[in-house]
Each structure stands twice: as structure tokens, then as C-alpha cells.
Computed example of a mutant assay.
Amino acid sequence: MTSKATARAHPIQGLVKYHGLRDEADRHPYHDSISVCTAPSNTTTTVEWEPDASEDTYVIDGEPVEGRGAERIDNVVDAIREHAGFDHAVRVESENSFPSNVGFGSSASGFAALAYAACEAAGLELTRPEVSTFARRGSSSAARAVTGAYSDLHTGLNDVDCRSERIETGVGELDGEPFDPESDLRIVTALVPSYKETEAAHREAADSHMFDARRAHVQDQLAEARDALREGAFHRIFETAEHDSLSLAATTMTGPAGWVYWQPETIAVFNAVRELRTESDVPVYFSTDTGASVYVNTTADYVDRVESRIAEVGVDTNVWEVGGPARTVDDALF
């Protein structure tokens, strides 16, 4: 047992998103979900098991974590403690390189880095799919951030079934040139700062009259996305992601709280993307998770033009690429 380790993980953009949980404690989703990790955005987390300490301590971006945030961290570290067969206290410090709670998947990278570092520090020799089952207990999306790139979290009622696996992608063709989903994708992020509460949306998901329709429809979305990724088919992959974003929003907006998280800038980005695609024949699609910020998916050849147009909306932009799996790093936070 090494007792201390540092890990880094990338957040995710949901392509076919999960919504709602069968089991809130172990965070078993109702159906599979597919995402792509985004880099260079990342979370770095250092974990040290402290057998002589009397209590756990959690710090994120320099601030102590309490309340529900601490409970979610407890879910992860308690499961790892049980698996490792000890009852040591733990010290956790974490830093994000990008804004959190704005719809850019910070909980995914956060719990992925936590689980990976905690397992490494405990001396557990586990595969990434196995580590993903611990990360899932903090955030279902974190399971996919452990395995990285394009990953699929399978539904299930136990850790053998409900884990993430990497999807192997193929090279397709776009505009007469090869398109590799892992090296050629560019993601223009449109930051729309608007705090969102994802847990509340998941908790009331099944109360929407649209929920059963989404569960039926999402199976076709999953099949389409998997096949398109294996074919390297840009338009099929990201048209599916765009359509799924609208389906997810329809379900959240028709829940008991009538939760609308899009802002005027969000809609303006949607319109700019559709204008580029329909009037200028640019390969570009939008995608959102549960938040007001937008992912704009395009290719390396078109990214400068797309970013320029999105910036005209009046939002802050960045350009991200496909990120890899969670991994250990040397630059410890303490």
C-alpha cells in the first residue's frame, strides 16, 4: 500500500445522456449512457490514507467540503475502504482547471480522479472498468471519465454489470478526407454561467410524463451512437448528440419543478450553430448536458470559423479536444 497518490481525470460531454437513477445510493442509472472526455480541462486530486487521523478531510479548490458534497465523497471513499479491508481516515484535496457547476461535467472528472487516486493509494490493483464502479457512486458520469475518450456506462443493478467501458472508434470520411473521432474532433465550449443542480433533476426524472417515452427512444439513440462511433461517422455521431440534448431537456422541463436551465445565450448559440450548418455547410452540431453552457462539436479544419461565430454571441469560448482516461500524475497537491 502506497498510502498517497495523485490522479488526473477529464470531464465529459454527454452524447447519449442518462437521466434519473434506479438507486440513488449506488447511482444505478435507468439506461446506458455514452460520452466523450474533454481535454485539456481536468481535475487533479491527491488522496492520502491516514491511519492515525481521527476524521476525513475534503478540500476542493481551496474550500472545505461539507453537507451533500461531503456525503457524495463519502460514498466513494467508504466503498473503497470496504474493498481494501481497512478503516483509515482519508485526506482529499482537489483542483479543477475549469469552471464547475455550469454544465461542463466537473462532477465527472472530480469523482473519477478521486476514485482513481484513492484506489492507487490503497494499493488496489484494479482495471479502469473496475475503478469506474467506485467513481459511479459519486456521479454516474464519473464512471465514463475513468475509462476516458468515448465510453459507455452500462446499466445494471450491481458492480459487475453497471460499469464503464471504452468504445473503440473507427476512422470514417468527411468532405472526402479521413475523419478520426479521437484526433480530429474539436469542441468549442460556450460558457453560460448559470448554476445548476443536477441531482434534483435526476431525483424527479421519473415523474415527467415524457420519461417513459425517453427510455423507449434512447435505446435507438444508443444503438445509433455506438455504430456511428465504430464507423467514424461525424454527422451521425453528433447529430445524435444534438437530438439527445433536446430529448433530455424535454424530460427535465416537464418534471414537477418545470426545470428550465437554458438561458437566452444558450438559444443564441443553438441558432448560430444551425445557421453555420444550413447556410454555410459547416459540419457543426450543438450539445448540452444539464446546464446552460453549450458544447459545439466540429472538426479541426473548421474550428477557427466556428469559434469566431460562437464568440459573436457574446459568450466566453474555449477549444477542447478528446481527453484520455483517468491516470496517476506526479504533481501532488500536498
Rank of each mutant, 00 (worst) to 15 (best):
E265W: 14
F234W: 07
E231T: 10
W259C: 00
A257M: 13
T240I: 00
D227N: 05
A228W: 01
A272I: 10
A233K: 10
L246E: 11
I267T: 15
T288W: 07
L229G: 00
T251F: 04
E265Y: 14
R236I: 02
P256I: 08
P264M: 13
E231R: 14
P256M: 04
R236A: 13
M253C: 14
P264A: 13
R274C: 03
L229F: 04
T290E: 01
N271S: 14
A241D: 08
D289C: 03
Y261S: 09
W262I: 06
G232F: 04
F238W: 12
D227P: 01
V273A: 09
T288I: 15
G258I: 04
F238S: 03
F238E: 02
Q263G: 09
W262L: 12
E279S: 10
V260D: 13
S287G: 15
R230S: 02
T251E: 15
A268P: 14
A272N: 11
F270Q: 07
Q263I: 04
T252W: 00
E265H: 15
T240E: 04
P264H: 12
E265F: 12
G255H: 12
L246P: 04
L229S: 03
S293L: 10
W262G: 04
E239M: 06
L276I: 05
S245F: 03
A257Q: 12
D227R: 11
L248N: 08
A249H: 13
A233M: 03
E242T: 00
A241R: 06
L229D: 00
M253H: 09
P256D: 10
R226P: 03
V260Y: 14
W262Q: 07
D281R: 01
D289T: 10
A292R: 04
V269E: 09
P264Y: 13
G291V: 10
E265A: 15
A241P: 02
W259P: 00
E279Q: 10
I237N: 03
R226S: 06
I267F: 15
A241H: 10
L246A: 12
F270A: 09
E231V: 05
L276T: 05
A228Q: 01
V282S: 04
T252V: 11
P264V: 12
D281Y: 03
V284R: 07
T278R: 08
F286H: 03
D289Q: 04
V260G: 05
S280I: 03
Q263K: 14
A249R: 12
R230K: 02
L248Y: 08
E231M: 10
P283D: 11
R226N: 08
E275Q: 11
E265C: 12
D281H: 04
D227G: 01
T240C: 08
S293T: 11
P283H: 13
M253Q: 15
V260P: 01
A272Y: 09
M253G: 12
F270S: 06
A228H: 01
Q263H: 05
G255N: 13
A249K: 06
P283R: 07
D289A: 07
F286L: 00
A268Y: 09
A233Y: 08
A250S: 15
L229C: 01
A233D: 15
R230Q: 06
Y285C: 02
H243Y: 09
T290S: 03
I237H: 02
E279T: 08
A268E: 14
V273S: 07
V273G: 06
G291K: 11
A250N: 14
V260T: 13
H235P: 00
P256A: 05
A257C: 08
E242D: 02
I237C: 11
F286P: 00
A292K: 07
V273F: 06
E279C: 02
Y285D: 00
T252F: 00
